[in-house]
C-alpha cells in the first residue's frame, strides 16, 4: 500500500504543478488589466507602484514568487479586495463550502444508494420507475431552478429556514439539499447499474444455493462490490462539492468558495485565481488518492495487484 500511496502523491504533485503553470499562462495572456478595478482610469504611477509592490513587473519572477509563496502556504494579496490576503479569503470561504459540500455528499449517499439498490432489486416495478424518474429530475433540473424553488417553498412560504445568508445552523440544510440533488441522482444511477451487474454474477447464485436470504445477498454480497464504482465517483464528486457551487451560493447568498472562482476570473485577480485553482486541484488530488486507497482496501483484488 505504501509504495502505491507514495506514487500517487508524487503524480498528484506533478499534476498540480502542471495545472499551476497552465493557469498562470492563461492569466497572463488574457487581455485586461488586473489593476483596473473600477471603470475609472488609474493614474499610471499608481499602477506602476502596485506592479512593483506585487512583484508583477516580470512574468517569470511573478511565477516563481507566487509558487514559492504558495508552497509555504502564503498566497499573497488579492487585487480586487486589497485589504484582504488570498489566504484570509480562502480560509473564510472554504470551511463554509466544505461544510455544505460534505453534507451534500452525505445526503447524496444516504438517499442515492438505497434508491439505487431498491431500483435494482425491484427492477421494472413501480419502485424502479419511480427511482429512475427521480434520477432524471435530479440530473436534468439545473441547480438554480431547484434551489430557488426550495428557497421559495421552505424559506418564504413555510418559513422553516432563513432566506439565505450564513451564520447559524439553520442556514445549512437548504443549500446542502440543493447541492446534493445532482449527486444523489448520479449515485443512484451508478448504484443501480452496479447492482444489476453484480446480481447476475455466479457467486450470487452460490450464495443463494447456500441458503442466504435475499437481504443478506443484496447487502452483504452484492452491495459491497456494486458500491466500488460509486466509491470511485465519490472522490472527484466530494472535491467538487466541497469547493462550492457558484450557483447554489448565489441563490442562497452563502459566502462560500464557488463565487470566488468565478469572480476572481471576471475581475482578473491573478492571486485569487491561482490560489483558488491550486486549492481545488490539491483537494481533487487528495480526494482521488484517498479514494484509491479506500478502493484498494475495499477490493482485495486491487491490493494484490498493487
Amino acid at each position: 500500500m505504501m509504495p502505491m500511496l507514495v506514487r500517487r502523491l508524487f503524480w498528484g504533485a506533478v499534476t498540480i504543478a502542471c495545472i499551476y503553470t497552465l493557469t498562470f499562462l492563461m492569466v497572463i495572456t488574457v487581455p485586461g488589466n488586473p489593476f483596473r478595478q473600477s471603470e475609472r482610469n488609474m493614474p499610471p504611477e499608481a499602477e506602476r507602484a502596485l506592479r512593483v509592490r506585487y512583484n508583477m513587473d516580470d512574468n517569470w519572477s511573478y511565477f516563481v514568487e507566487f509558487l514559492s509563496g504558495a508552497v509555504r502556504g502564503d498566497f499573497g494579496p488579492s487585487f480586487t479586495y486589497s485589504d484582504w490576503t488570498c489566504n484570509q479569503i480562502i480560509s473564510e470561504a472554504f470551511p463554509i463550502s466544505a461544510m455544505i459540500g460534505l453534507l451534500a455528499i452525505l445526503i447524496a449517499i444516504v438517499i442515492g444508494v438505497p434508491t439505487g439498490v431498491i431500483a435494482a432489486t425491484k427492477r421494472d416495478t413501480a419502485w424502479d420507475f419511480g427511482a429512475l424518474a427521480l434520477v432524471l429530475v435530479g440530473i436534468s433540473l439545473p441547480t438554480f431552478v431547484t434551489g430557488t424553488f426550495l428557497l421559495i417553498l421552505f424559506a418564504v412560504h413555510l418559513q422553516w429556514a432563513p432566506i439565505g445568508g450564513w451564520g447559524t445552523l439553520a442556514h445549512l440544510p437548504l443549500p446542502a439539499l440543493t447541492l446534493s440533488l445532482p449527486f444523489t441522482a448520479y449515485i443512484a444511477r451508478l448504484t443501480r447499474v452496479g447492482m444489476l451487474d453484480v446480481m447476475g454474477s455466479d457467486f450470487i447464485r452460490t450464495a443463494r444455493a447456500k441458503g442466504c436470504d435475499e437481504r443478506t445477498i443484496v447487502w452483504k454480497h452484492a452491495f459491497k462490490i456494486a458500491f466500488l464504482p460509486v466509491l470511485s465517483y465519490l472522490g472527484p464528486a466530494t472535491a467538487q462539492a466541497m469547493t462550492g457551487s457558484f450557483v447554489v451560493e448565489k441563490v442562497f447568498g452563502v459566502p462560500g468558495l464557488g463565487q470566488h472562482f468565478v469572480n476572481a476570473a471576471l475581475n482578473l485577480d491573478p492571486g485569487l485565481i491561482m490560489s483558488t485553482v491550486l486549492v481545488f486541484s490539491a483537494l481533487l488530488v487528495a480526494m482521488n488518492v484517498a479514494v484509491d486507497v479506500l478502493y484498494a482496501w475495499a477490493d482485495p483484488r486491487i491490493t494484490a495487484a498493487v
Partner: peptide, 20 residues
Amino acid sequence: MRGSRIAMIFQEPMTSLNPV
C-alpha cells in the same frame, strides 16, 4: 434446505466465489 440439506457446486469455480 439449501446448503444445509442439499448443497450445490457449480461449473465455474473462478467466478462462483465472492471476490471480496
